[in-house]
């Protein structure tokens, strides 16, 4: 394969460490803007101030931003020929080591016995998504998604009579706002939504999570979806739920929507909710496996 990747271990460990202890610039920016927007000295503003201080402290101390370091999701873009089994094994080792060092909480529980593996490794954990592409580059993105935010995910099957939501973008708007209403107070808002219109019950959620890999300040290349994103962002903030559900002007920081083909008989809208502790980071690797550059 021609690639040595001898520095891969330390690069992956550093990726996990940074993902858990630092927020990317696009997320820090929206938090800072929200502080300016909230009413001076309101509970909402004070909550956001504590959040901003927390981000700073975590970075300085190199400790987890949030104690729920969530599930570890890896998204790997790689050339044909990369040994994916080797790569996944290296990533598992990095996760284990990061757990031992306290960058990650022990967060993987056997569903039948209730026993915690203590390493964050277990059946289905961490999660790997490999995407092959026609380029020699290897990019590794990581997202940590906490349980509180994961619990706020919802999947709607349209039409939905109670909301008069039909199988069109207007129907999508209604159910997505419904997901925001239901998440209030629970998912550590302000939040960010990743949404997928279409797909099946499994791919819909998968794609909705992948939307969260987009930068917050990007523009959706599909004009209808770009418009839907900005409408929902605006209307969600009109709900007045605010940071932590204390009331206030910022309920969401962003909405990212993608679409997939569906079966004629199905119309799913899958919503993944991400909390303010939006931990995602990524690296592009050089030939020897060291970090060439950071992606966020």
């Amino acid at each position: 394969m021609g690639m040595l990747l001898c520095n891969l271990d330390s690069s992956l460990l550093e990726l996990v460490r940074r993902t858990s202890t630092e927020l990317p610039a696009d997320v820090r920016n929206v938090i800072h803007q929200a502080i300016q927007r909230e009413q001076q000295d309101s509970i909402a503003q004070n909550a956001l101030n504590i959040i901003e201080r927390n981000i700073q402290l975590a970075q300085e101390r190199s400790l987890p931003l949030c104690q729920d370091t969530g599930s570890c999701l890896f998204y790997i873009d790689c050339p044909v020929g990369l040994d994916q089994m080797m790569f996944a094994e290296k990533a598992r080792e990095a996760v284990k080591e990061a757990t031992r060092r306290g960058y990650l909480r022990q967060n993987s529980v056997d569903s039948l016995t209730g026993k915690n593996s203590g390493t964050n490794i277990g059946i289905g954990m961490p999660v790997f998504h490999f995407h092959q592409h026609n380029s020699p580059e290897i990019k590794v993105r990581m997202m940590l998604k906490g349980g509180g935010s994961e619990n706020m995910g919802q999947q709607y099957s349209l039409p939905m009579v109670s909301l008069k939501a039909n199988r069109d973008l207007e129907g999508c708007r209604k159910v997505i706002l419904d997901a925001v209403l239901n998440a209030q107070g629970k998912g550590c808002g302000p939040g960010i939504l990743g949404v997928c219109i279409g797909g099946d019950r499994a791919t819909g959620f998968e794609h909705s999570k992948e939307q969260l890999l987009r930068k917050l300040d990007d523009t959706n290349p599909i004009p209808e979806l770009a418009e839907l994103e900005s409408t929902i962002l605006k209307q969600a903030n009109e709900l007045g739920i605010g940071p932590m559900g204390f009331g206030g002007k910022t309920t969401l920081f962003g909405v990212k929507i993608g679409a997939m083909n569906r079966l004629p008989a199905c119309y799913f809208v899958s919503v993944s909710y991400m909390c303010w502790a939006f931990r995602r980071q990524g690296i592009q690797l050089s030939e020897d496996g060291s970090v060439q550059n950071w992606l966020y």
């Binding site: 909550a47 504590i50 959040i51 201080r53 927390n54 402290l57 975590a58 101390r61 400790l63 987890p64 931003l65 949030c66 104690q67 729920d68 906490g146 509180g148 550590c188 932590m244 204390f246 909390c275 303010w276 502790a277």
Partner: peptide, 13 residues
Amino acid sequence: FHAIGGAAQVLAS
């Protein structure tokens, strides 16, 4: 009492 969700470091301090 509502604590600030996710503010693990501020609260740990």
